[in-house]
Simulated assay, not measured.
Amino acid sequence: MASLTVSSITNGDVRTHFVSTAAVNWVILQDDSGVTLIDGGYPGHASAVVESLTQIGSAPEEIRGALLTHAHVDHLGGIAALRRGHSFDVFADPEEVGHARRDFLEQASPADIARIAYRPSVLRWLSEIVPLGALDKSGIADALPFTDLSALPGAPVAVPTHGHTRGHSAFVVGGGEVAVTGDALVSGHMISTVAGPQCLGHVFTHDVPANEDAVASLAALDATVVMPGHGPLLRGDIAVFVEQALT
């Protein structure tokens, strides 16, 4: 099982849990009605998702719904695997639903990765993610477009951040204190040469200018905690993190 770390923030009756692994992160929103899962790692992370639920005193049976920041295999895969044994709806931005259903696939191809595979960090990354199911092209055939998410545990609010994929979404939770930024704004990656707020490399991003515009828009949020799809949790003014990522 993948090694994981859970960091938690409480705001009123909502507990927001940031689950970090070496390869990718996910977030769990928890209140008295159950949990909302935001992303779920690679297919091979399904057991780690269950372990993270156990660590917060929950279980897959308490999942009331799952949200995708986007439908890349390292965010969708664990959810798809978990749903083979558990029943819950999966939601994505309306522009991302086709991607989640695999009507099309919008992620780095083997040819894209081959062009950067000479770098030792890329080879180490591949050795980590291929056993986790990085080559799996399965989707979630019944993924649904989200509208009002207020009925889900934690009452997440979607923030369109199209660019990394055509329907990428961030989410604001914890009364506006926390921004879950997926892969629009990250704080590190296994192949990145820098640490701290950044945008993922161009090879991973569908529309680089659109993603940069989306990240810039995040500066208007009041969040003081950023939970990214890759890298460590960030605490501070999100506008400062945005400036650092776009510099």
Results as ranks from 00 to 15, higher is better:
L246K: 02
D31R: 02
E128V: 15
S20Y: 05
V215W: 03
I116T: 11
Y42P: 01
A100D: 03
V90D: 04
Y118M: 10
A71F: 03
V130P: 06
V35R: 05
P145A: 07
N25S: 07
K137Q: 15
M227K: 01
A223Y: 09
G167V: 06
R101F: 03
V225L: 07
D32Q: 12
D93F: 02
T21I: 03
T193D: 15
F88Q: 08
G78C: 14
A216M: 04
R15Q: 13
V173P: 07
V226I: 12
H45V: 03
A92H: 06
G98Y: 04
G57S: 10
L149T: 09
F91K: 02
S192A: 12
V215T: 00
L53D: 03
A100P: 08
E212C: 09
L135D: 13
G65A: 06
V27N: 07
D74A: 13
P197W: 03
G154F: 14
L29S: 08
I113E: 10
A71I: 05
D112P: 09
S121A: 15
G182N: 12
L144Q: 14
M1R: 11
A219W: 08
S150T: 10
S33K: 02
S169P: 13
S127I: 01
S7V: 15
S20A: 15
R84W: 00
H189W: 11
